[in-house]
């Protein structure tokens, strides 16, 4: 069967083109307590929640050089919660003045038949991992502090082993395109975490 044509054009979610503003950093396990304490103080007044998600990354290779990537995530600790399918675009190049990494993003909640559906469409799974950590919120900002675990048995969470001795810290906002003031907000919040963790624009392409 012929694979459907693949586009690498930016996908727009519904009518509004949503953008993710992202800063990332890393903190060692020893520093985690301090960071969580600080985040509790800085973030909105609500109980911090923990999460454990399983993420699979699917690729669809077409005629173009770069494959089309989709991320499917499911919560391990909340039975009944929907799956989450996410498309993340390439980080917007240029514009060094912007304080955060900006990329196109489309979020869809799906049912649990998503993996089969994707495979039927011609996607194939590239890699998977488990993320366990804490989730905070400050206004529109989402702060996730989590550890990445390597999956040993494909498709299951059992026997996952930690990938490193550090936690990944992500500070993200999803906003309609063109709201660059959000980036400043993200940056100023990152400043407040600076003594503990340095959050930066990290382009995954450059690390590869």
């Amino acid at each position: 069967m012929e694979a459907p044509p693949v586009t690498t054009m930016p996908v727009s979610g519904g009518t509004i083109n949503m953008m993710e503003y992202l800063l990332q950093g890393s903190i060692l396990d020893q520093g985690l307590e301090g960071l969580l304490h600080r985040l509790r103080g800085l973030c909105d007044n609500m109980e911090p929640e923990t999460f454990a998600d399983h993420e699979s990354v699917y690729l669809l290779k077409g005629q173009q050089a770069s494959p089309f990537v989709l991320r499917a995530r499911r919560p391990l600790d909340r039975p009944g919660a929907p799956w989450h399918l996410r498309y993340l675009g390439q980080p917007e190049a240029g514009d060094r003045s912007r304080h955060a990494l900006v990329r196109n993003c489309v979020d869809i909640a799906t049912s649990e038949v998503l993996p089969e559906f994707l495979q039927e469409m011609g996607f194939r799974m590239d890699h998977e991992f488990i993320a366990k950590g804490h989730l905070f919120r400050k206004g529109v900002m989402k702060i996730a502090v989590y550890k990445v675990f390597r999956v040993l048995v494909a498709g299951t969470a059992e026997g996952a082993e930690p990938l490193s001795l550090s936690y990944l810290v992500e500070l993200s906002v999803v906003a309609p395109a063109g709201q660059d003031s959000v980036a400043d907000e993200v940056r100023s919040f990152a400043e407040q975490l600076r003594p503990l963790v340095q959050l930066e624009k990290i382009d995954p392409k450059r690390l590869m």
Binding site: D44, M46, E49, F51, D53, E55, R71, R73, R74, P75, D77, R78, A81, P82, W83, H84, R86, D107, I108, A109, T110, S111, E112, A131, G133, L135, R137, V140, K142, A144, Y146, V174
Partner: peptide, 26 residues
Amino acid sequence: TLSNIVMPHPASAPFGHKRMRLAGPQ
């Protein structure tokens, strides 16, 4: 408005009403 704000699960999902997120899949 306060109680409407629930943390999304999985963590990558956007903020919003939980039932709204279920609207599509269900």
